[in-house]
């Protein structure tokens, strides 16, 4: 490592970019949230913390938060379990597993709009992929995206499908980093495969679970494209997820100040959730060490 200020020249372009497109905007967003700012007429009135006070009583916003929470409760554990199961399968020493891993990754790199269009078809009543099968079995057709009981689970299920690849890869990496010797010792002690999975693999994967949990939760709270393309928050606001709600506030109702306040509250809550998940996971780990 060279002790030299030359390093500054190399990091200058990226640092300038960071300053202009990340650091200044965060400060600017905080500033905007202290006004009532009409971006169409470009009029602004300073209102202090009024936006935040209103937000606390804003039923539409908290309704969206509640729906997003429900969505995350389905999508996050579902995505985690699916990815873990698939990772266990594809990390076996069998031929062709790399091929499967590549294939499973494809939905995650695909265009979100194209994926949404495909899933509109998958969920279509009568002619859609799922309903064709249901009706083939003699069941009635379900209008998944327009029935209030079905729309949110339908979006959550789709997100498990889309996000499978990256989560699976992270679990595969986690599985490969497990210490082989511990498993050999357990086998000598006569541990069954089932015991090894629950007593060793699962606790040893704790850092991986945590990473997947935190990133998936953040992802769930930022979901936008599927809602924009597939449901527009309908039916009856059940799919009005908070990422979409903030978009509508800013770019359809042109209330950028309220939207800025909303995005700060969201960021704060996501920070709390990540911290809580981190704490919980660490307590589990310590409990495991003690036993």
């Amino acid at each position: 490592m060279r002790k030299s200020q030359t390093g500054w020249w190399f990091i200058a372009p990226a640092s300038l970019h960071l300053l202009v497109f990340a650091l200044v905007p965060v400060a600017y967003a905080a500033y905007v949230s202290l006004f009532r700012w009409d971006i169409l007429r470009d009029e602004r009135t300073f209102v202090g913390l009024d936006q935040y006070q209103r937000l606390m009583a804003d039923q539409a916003f908290w309704g969206a938060m509640g729906q997003t929470f429900k969505y995350a409760l389905m999508a996050v554990p579902g995505g985690l379990v699916a990815a873990l199961l698939v990772a266990l399968a594809v990390s076996q020493p069998l031929k062709g597993m790399a091929w499967f891993r590549t294939l499973f990754y494809i939905p995650a790199v695909s265009s979100g709009v194209a994926i949404a269009m495909l899933w509109i078809y998958v969920y279509l009543p009568e002619r859609g992929l799922i309903n064709t099968m249901l009706m083939g079995l003699g069941w009635p057709s379900i209008d998944f995206l327009n029935e209030s009981g079905w729309a949110l689970p339908a979006l959550a299920f789709m997100s498990v499908w889309v996000g499978l690849g990256p989560r699976m890869i992270i679990y595969v990496a986690g599985l490969m980093s497990l210490p082989v010797t511990v498993y050999e010792a357990a086998s000598l002690d006569g541990a069954s495969g089932w015991q090894k999975f629950w007593r060793m693999t699962m606790p040893l994967l704790a850092p991986t679970h945590l990473f997947v949990l935190v990133t998936s939760t953040i992802g769930a709270f930022q979901t936008f494209t599927p809602v924009y393309m597939m449901t527009n928050g309908r039916p009856m606001g059940t799919t009005n997820l908070v990422g979409y709600h903030i978009y509508v506030t800013a770019w359809e109702n042109f209330n950028v100040s309220a939207a800025s306040a909303q995005s700060f509250v969201l960021l704060f809550l996501l920070g709390l959730v990540s911290l809580a998940q981190f704490r919980m996971m660490r307590r589990r780990l310590e409990g495991y060490d003690a036993s």
Binding site: T6, A22, L23, S263
Partner: peptide, 28 residues
């Protein structure tokens, strides 16, 4: 490859920006 003054602090800002990228910065 270089040890320069403020390196750790600036790198910390880069890491922190990964957290809030997108959600808060779009409007400003």
């Amino acid at each position: 490859r270089y040890a320069f003054r403020g390196r750790e602090a600036v790198f910390g800002l880069f890491l922190a920006s990964m957290m809030f990228a997108g959600a808060v910065t779009q409007i400003p």
